[in-house]
Write a protein that binds this DNA or RNA. Sequence first.
DNA 1: CTCATTTTGTACCGTTTCGCATAAAATAAT
DNA 2: ATTATTTTATGCGAAACGGTACAAAATGAG
Lengths: 202, 202
Amino acid sequence: MSEKKRGRPRAFDAKVTLEKARDVFWDRGFAGTSLDTLSAATQLNRPSLYGAFGDKEALYLDVMEAYRAESMDVLADALDLSLPLRDNLANVYKGALKIYLHGETAARGCFLISTATAEAIQHERVRELLRRSLEDFDSAIEQRMALAVERGELPDGSDVHMLARLASAVMHSLAVRARAGDSRKTLEALAQSGVDMICGKA
Amino acid sequence: MSEKKRGRPRAFDAKVTLEKARDVFWDRGFAGTSLDTLSAATQLNRPSLYGAFGDKEALYLDVMEAYRAESMDVLADALDLSLPLRDNLANVYKGALKIYLHGETAARGCFLISTATAEAIQHERVRELLRRSLEDFDSAIEQRMALAVERGELPDGSDVHMLARLASAVMHSLAVRARAGDSRKTLEALAQSGVDMICGKA
DNA sequence: CTCATTTTGTACCGTTTCGCATAAAATAAT
DNA sequence: ATTATTTTATGCGAAACGGTACAAAATGAG
């Protein structure tokens, strides 16, 4: 698949480097993160970073895309079709909180909502990728909701389009509140209420 | 009320200055806004800014607090007690969208969610003020919900605490999605669905 | 072995950044 | 008028910033 290249081989794994870069961006934001900080965190000097990913914005966009892709994977796992919709949704929120509540000094929230929103005005490509990321997430949930109607888990004629976006809305709020320092208990209560709201208070 | 001070009088209105500073922070974020940019936008040279508000973080905190206070005023207006809860909630979202969809190059979203979240990890005071701002908003809505139960607008035994936080959650999502570039139509549909979800699909 | 190719590391460039030192300007008090 | 007090304006300076030039190092090809 990947032929061995000609010149000096890379001394780093691009995927791991993106994760390290992601973590500093996550804590400090895009504008608040210097290339020096990124260089230290990734253990790559700036020319290597530049050669591998381009300038700071290009690196950030790569990180965004990796986060989007991984989020979709996590979502797909949570939406295990062998489980009822209620459990699926609970798992989506549970998985989100597991990510959001991680953090050394404070809970870090969602990478996109916490850091990409800030840049969305000045950097059009960030805004566009953010929009698409949210949309993809909504669509995957909507698809599961449509199946739920077929299976009789949701009433016939349910507006699955809006229901999915309401389900996402709860997650967006979890992200914001986690970053603001709300307690795990508080957030889990909101998640539970979200599930009840969408699936009915069982 | 305000005695005339001794020295040279200020050539600017602090409130207006805070609004101008807020607008540049809103577009570019805290870390992405330089003192030069702030100086140009407020038409104050840096030493004047520094003398009046302190350093960049102190200025930003002042802007945050002003935004929080104004948001609570807008919310109080939307929660006009002479109207039904359904109309109140619709007005809350309508008022939010009016603010969020404003913007020269792109919709700016919510000032706090778009810019304060990014700084919340590194700047504890930002995080704390953000948390308190969200909480105040939740509490005001909860208070209105409690009245709604008394008035029979909501079923007896409704969990007004969680209902209020779900209502806020929809607004948080509107904020994120507006910043991401979602259309007015899309956002208005989500707002409508939020109202229906909380108040029942009338 | 020799050469072409790619990555790495050092060092550097010009610019921007934040914050302050200092002096001029504008007012109230005396 | 003189003085004390506060704000304004110019300009400085040390540090950090993003980005790159350049040569050394490490590999494959011939």
